[in-house]
Amino acid sequence: MSGEATGAMLSTPVYAPEVSILASGRRLLVVQDAGVEEAARLHGQLSADGQAVELIALRGEAPWAGGQRGCGSTDLLEVRLLTLLSSAPVGTRLYVCGDETFAWRIYRLARNSGLLAEEIELVKAGSQRELYCVHCATMQTIGRETETTCCHCGVQLLVREHFSRRLGAYMGVCINPDQPYAENKA
């Protein structure tokens, strides 16, 4: 799964180009959008040796998995995943495909239900990610931009490459130390 980058900031997640696949054990695949190419490719890799892959999708349709459709809501997806995890034996691997917001949310859920980091593989698809404002502790969803404004406290934020696995978010810090608060709050 995600190793640590060398060169980039240490906490920036790096996603392995290829997932590792065990010869035995159950394979659970959680995808954010069954319609994207990454999901189809991952499913192809996981089922290449003829073994069953249990799929849960949030949205989209998976022609490569008998036309299975997304369940439509994150709550429902999480309940389904927890049900699968509660009946799965040690040796199961969880594969997650989606943007960073989605992937790390599922990652945290799986870790909280007892999986180890080595039992989870993340494949990134899409560019949406979470930003945590270190000044007012608000989360917001962003794309690839490296600067933005906090949606809550209005501070101009620099998106640092520091990623918190606990929060599943990048850290946003004030760009201009001379102007730590937005004018409308001053």
């Binding site: 799965a88 034996p89 239900s113």
Partner: peptide, 9 residues
């Protein structure tokens, strides 16, 4: 024995 243990064992 080891094949049938619940996850998080």
């Amino acid at each position: 024995l080891l094949r049938s243990q619940p996850l998080a064992t």
